[in-house]
Amino acid sequence: MTLNPFHHSQVRSTSVALLVGLFVSGPAFGAFAPGGFSVAVVSTAGSTTPTNTVAPVSATTWAATGGWTFGGASVSWTNNTQGWNSLTSTGFTSGNVVIRNESAAAQDYTITIGMTGVAAGPLVVSGSVGGQFLNTSFGLGSLTSSGPLWSALVDGATARNEFNNTLVFAQPFQIISLGNANFSNVVVPTSTASTLAIRLSVRMSAGSEASFTSTFAFQAVPAPGAIALITVAGMFGRRLRRR
């Protein structure tokens, strides 16, 4: 391919690259590091350190697979997390968490899946959660939550709660669908954010299992200055194309 400085696509990509360069030359957190992903499990069953393996899926997305087991209670997860983009302050985490109680008594679980970086606010967040409860005991199984079962957090503050005060019963070897919840365009009035997280809080009877799939994505609300810069860059590109 011969380089034509006036070819439309090349001019467009040049101006976009210029714009990207302007932003990336500032803070250097465009590249996501696997350390930006964290999982914490707190359970009445006991305390131990989770194991977690992080591997790249693409240039900006990492897959985390891990587990936590103590005294018959276990949690396992597979979660994809996209790095924080310094240009748009965007990112997301999406995945599945399976909680199992093989102990002899009901157990409480709090699982927090976090992603860390620096994002300029205010932010617009969206996400979803869905799940099912499976009773593999020979008695009546139950899943409950005191307050929200699922929360989306920005720097520890709640951005969204779903599945409030859940109470579900299942017969032996019965699966109960917990339904789903979706939200979008929720504005979080923060100037900067360094930790975004999903938190699951649930109590499960002995011999039961719950599976949750959830996503949490954020994007910065474009500041007036950024909008003006993008407009100028667009006009500049258009002028180049005319020439």
């Binding site: 699966i175 917990l178 979008s184 994505a217």
Partner: peptide, 17 residues
């Protein structure tokens, strides 16, 4: 049909109860 959305489905059963 929504960005980052999730849907749940109950796929049915046989032999219950």
């Amino acid at each position: 049909t929504s960005v980052n959305g999730t849907t749940s489905f109950s796929g049915g059963s046989f032999g219950f109860p």
